[in-house]
Structures are given as structure tokens and as C-alpha cells.
């Protein structure tokens, strides 16, 4: 068996009374531990594709395997318990406190109260919520905070696979960005397989190791963000990802895709402000730094402020 977490074999889904299938003859392999975003306009079948994995929708034909096992051969709720599920509507239980919400699945799994409490503490830290929120109720939280709880609740049973259906779609732009950053950190840390549906090109590029571009029930391209930008498979993909100005396009490319990796650290004091933090930083922020006087090279540093690569004008130009 290879390392595929999710496999689609010729999966078609046609809803009753629909003229065209929502998802058409789709084959797909999602590698374990990868962060895959599904990008497309509304009605393209991206949500249907996602919701067939936890059997909210059943395929009309074809089959789906997770970790090599066909999902229809497992008891329904046993399948769902091993899959974290986060939706745009969040769906916290309003009559239960934050800790009770998070404890829902651990209680079904009959964990000991001590283990559940430790898990809640750990998850609240992970999603950056204060421990004092435990006894609060969902209505007392902001939308962004509620979705953090939604995320913690979905991860409570430590599922290896997470399905996320436009989870940040209803959240304000500033909060959405920090949630995206945290999502990347969480995935790095816990190595979950994440499938993330979005209609936001920027979000898909930022989060995904690979992106599935969908249109009219068919996968148009399944590739890394850089490949999709550099070599769109067809006109549809090109139109979708091609920004009308190059400045916006720079926002879609990560620093790590343009940098020259380095292993020895140059004298840190000489950098001044010419550094960006994180391999996922966009080339837009790199460009802004390069435009400053006296800056000819931008250093990419990791979270510990250790340099991992450098970007110059020449390297930046190559990517545009």
C-alpha cells in the first residue's frame, strides 16, 4: 500500500432531478500528510467532492478509499469519527459550553475525564484561545473565535484527515489571515491530511501544498500552486488564477519558491529591515522590501529568525 490517505475511483455524483452530474467520473489521490485545497466557483462540485468523503453525500457510482479502506465498508459513524469536519456555518452547539463542545467526540470515544481535560487544554492552546474560555458559551464568542473552537472540536478525537468546507468564508479579512497562518502551522506541527474547499484563489494558493481546480464537476488541474501559476492546464485555470496585474500575482507565490536556499548565516546585523519571516511569505512582501533604498537582497528567515534563503531582483524577475 502506498501513502495515499484518500483515493477516488471513477466517482460520479448526480443529485436527483439534476441534469448534469455535480461530480463527474473523478479519479483522485491525496497523499497522506498533504494540505490540498479545492478551488472553484460555487456550483462547480467542490463541496460535493469533499462531502462524499465523510458520506454526507453518497456517490452515484465509483468508490472512495481512505487509508486503503473502502468507506462504504466501514460503519458510518466510525468513519466520521476518524475524520475532522469543519464547515463555514461553524455549527457549535449553542447550549453547550466551549469545553463541552470540544469534548463531544472524546466522550463518544469514552476517554477518561482526565484525558479529555488534557486534550481540551492542549487544543485551546493550539488554536490560540485562552483557557478562560472553557466555561463560556458560543454566543459569547466572536465569529473568528467560534471557528477556532470549531477547529478544536473537529480535532478533538485526533483524526488523521480533516475536511474543511470554506471554514473561513464568513470571517472578516484580518481574522481570516491569522486563521490561515495558524492553519499552516497546525498542519506542519501535526502532519494531518487536510482537504480544504475555498473559492478564494489567494487562500487556495497560500494554504495548499497542492491545489485541485474544479469546474463543472471535473478536476481541471491538480498541481502545486507554482505549477498552476506557471503552467495552467487549460484556459479555465489560466483565467481563474491569472490576475490582471503582476503585483497581485506576486501575492500568490511563496518566498520559498523563489529563494536561493542558504545554509550559512551571514552577519545578521547587516540586514536591517531586509528580511521576511516564513517560507510562506508572499513575493509581494519581498518586492516591497526590494523597492526600499539600500536593499539589494531580501533574506527569508524561519520562525526562529534563522535565515533559510535569499531573494534578489534577478530571482524575483524570473518568477514573474
Amino acid at each position: 500500500m502506498n501513502q495515499d490517505a484518500i483515493v477516488f475511483n471513477r466517482v460520479t455524483k448526480t443529485f436527483p432531478k439534476a441534469a448534469k452530474p455535480a461530480v463527474n467520473e473523478t479519479n483522485l489521490r491525496i497523499e497522506a500528510g498533504s494540505f490540498v485545497t479545492i478551488l472553484g466557483a460555487s456550483g462547480c462540485g467542490k463541496t460535493t467532492l469533499l462531502k462524499m468523503i465523510n458520506r454526507i453525500h453518497e456517490p452515484s457510482s465509483g468508490n472512495i478509499l481512505i487509508n486503503g479502506q473502502e468507506i462504504t465498508k466501514m460503519p458510518l459513524n466510525a468513519l466520521r469519527i476518524q475524520i475532522g469536519y469543519v464547515i463555514q456555518g461553524i455549527g457549535l452547539f449553542p447550549h453547550l459550553s466551549i469545553e463541552e463542545n470540544i469534548a463531544t467526540i472524546p466522550k463518544v470515544l469514552k476517554w477518561s475525564p482526565k484525558r479529555i481535560e488534557e486534550r481540551i487544554d492542549y487544543l485551546l492552546d493550539l488554536v490560540h484561545l485562552p483557557q478562560s474560555f472553557k466555561k463560556r458559551y458560543p454566543a459569547q464568542l466572536s465569529g473568528g473565535q467560534q471557528q477556532r473552537v470549531g477547529l478544536a472540536r473537529a480535532m478533538a478525537g485526533d483524526p488523521a484527515i480533516m475536511l474543511m468546507d470554506e471554514p473561513f468564508g464568513a470571517i472578516d479579512a484580518i481574522t481570516r489571515e491569522s486563521l490561515q497562518d495558524e492553519m499552516i502551522q497546525i498542519q506542519k506541527k501535526l502532519n494531518k491530511t487536510i482537504l480544504f474547499v475555498t473559492h478564494d484563489v489567494q487562500e487556495a494558493m497560500k494554504l495548499g501544498d497542492r491545489i485541485i481546480v474544479m469546474n463543472e464537476g471535473t478536476i481541471q488541474q491538480y498541481d502545486t500552486p507554482l505549477e498552476i501559476l506557471a503552467r495552467p492546464a487549460n484556459e479555465f485555470v489560466q483565467k481563474l488564477v491569472k490576475s490582471d496585474n503582476q503585483f497581485n500575482q506576486l501575492d500568490l507565490i511563496k518566498a520559498e519558491d523563489a529563494m536561493v536556499p542558504i545554509d550559512s548565516a551571514p552577519n545578521a546585523s547587516s540586514w536591517g529591515e531586509a528580511r521576511v519571516t516564513g517560507r510562506e511569505s508572499s513575493l509581494k512582501s519581498v518586492l516591497l522590501l526590494l523597492l526600499q533604498p539600500e536593499v539589494s537582497v531580501v533574506w527569508v528567515v524561519d520562525e526562529q529568525d534563522i535565515p533559510v534563503g535569499s531573494i534578489t531582483w534577478e530571482q524575483l524577475k524570473l518568477k514573474v
Binding site: 465523510n54 454526507i56 458510518l76 459513524n77 466510525a78 468513519l79 466520521r80 469519527i81 475524520i83 475532522g84 469536519y85 464547515i87 463555514q88 456555518g89 461553524i90 455549527g91 457549535l92 452547539f93 449553542p94 463531544t104 467526540i105 463518544v108 470549531g150 472540536r153 473537529a154 475536511l163
Partner: peptide, 18 residues
């Protein structure tokens, strides 16, 4: 009841009785 609440509950694997 907000349909999202039901969808979240079903999706996370709660049995219909629970």
C-alpha cells in the same frame, strides 16, 4: 435549529439517537 448545527453533529460522527 440552525442546519449547520445538525450538519456539524452528523459530520463529526454523532449517532442519530445521541
Amino acid at each position: 435549529i440552525n442546519p449547520s448545527i445538525i450538519e456539524a453533529g452528523r459530520g463529526m460522527g454523532l449517532g442519530s439517537l445521541r
